[in-house]
Design a protein around this nucleic acid. Sequence first.
DNA 1: CATAACATGTAATGAGTTACATGATTAA
DNA 2: TTAATCATGTAACTCATTACATGTTATG
Lengths: 180, 180
Amino acid sequence: MSLPHALLTALAERPGSGSELAGRFDKSIGYFWQATHQQIYRELARLEEAGFIESLPEESTRGRKRAYRILAAGRRELKRWIVQQHEPAGMRDELMVRIRAEAAVGPTGLDKLIRERLAAHEQKLALYRGIEARDFSADTDDRETALRHLVLKAGIRFEENWIEFLTDALAVLARPATPR
Amino acid sequence: MSLPHALLTALAERPGSGSELAGRFDKSIGYFWQATHQQIYRELARLEEAGFIESLPEESTRGRKRAYRILAAGRRELKRWIVQQHEPAGMRDELMVRIRAEAAVGPTGLDKLIRERLAAHEQKLALYRGIEARDFSADTDDRETALRHLVLKAGIRFEENWIEFLTDALAVLARPATPR
DNA sequence: CATAACATGTAATGAGTTACATGATTAA
DNA sequence: TTAATCATGTAACTCATTACATGTTATG
């Protein structure tokens, strides 16, 4: 349950409205946490209710921007949470299930699907490299920037990993099926 | 929603009871999909209801083993599903949120947490390498085995990736905080 | 001033988690 | 024969997704 804390982090970095935050979740935040606008609006309401953030205007506004910013209590909560114990997530990917299923009941036309995913990951990698080139030029490397860069590099490495894996997978899938 | 298909795959590889399947999800299946025994029992009941698997004994048995096996319709469903379009999952990890939060409101004692995770990933890597040495000796490399090996290697690469990243992260966190 | 795009929100559903319950088997 | 463990299951709850609803702002 990190969405509230991802939002607190985003608002600590810079204040913003729900839709603006949704935009950030599609961009720079998206490579380590995803959320739809519905989740974001609901969670922002909860965070305000809890006193971690505040918004303007006060009255209920449907259709008009509502600007949120983090409060001192929100920063305290974030600091508390950062060092809290948690379990590593573990990989969970449909494609792995499919490959293992293919091994059990295949062969099927799985290679086509994999080529599509390969393209998707290559596109994402290019996007991240673009962000890296734009936001992290070599000279500005204070601790704060280095940490944000680190997270982006993890995203890049993650994509590279996928591309390498999918390439290997295509080679194995291309083998003739072993007769039983 | 891959749990039903992960279960169909597991049962296609080998029949088994709910608890036995839960055991496999803690071991070899666990590096690409996780599930608790509650999820597994619920899903097995649905799969049987749908006619994809069958079980013995017939009568409702609480406390006694119920052996499931996949049916022809289950195999057909699995083949159909394997090649179905789907979106890549995208990384979603709490630790990334924490690092970015640390960049925003830190410094905190995050390095301690990272050292613990490093140990956890090293342990998991050792486990997978053990499975690899035991189940995938170099000589048996038919297509089916190669595919299962591929999935395991992805798990190994995944863990190696984490270890590398966490090591980098410790180096950055050790830097003195930049004064504002 | 009509229409598209933007912004906020509600409702329903389903997946996943946590806590608990109950019968069967095994071991002290 | 009692206690621990194994095996199956129920119930309640939260997170996440999908579909939809409603109002505001910008544009032709």
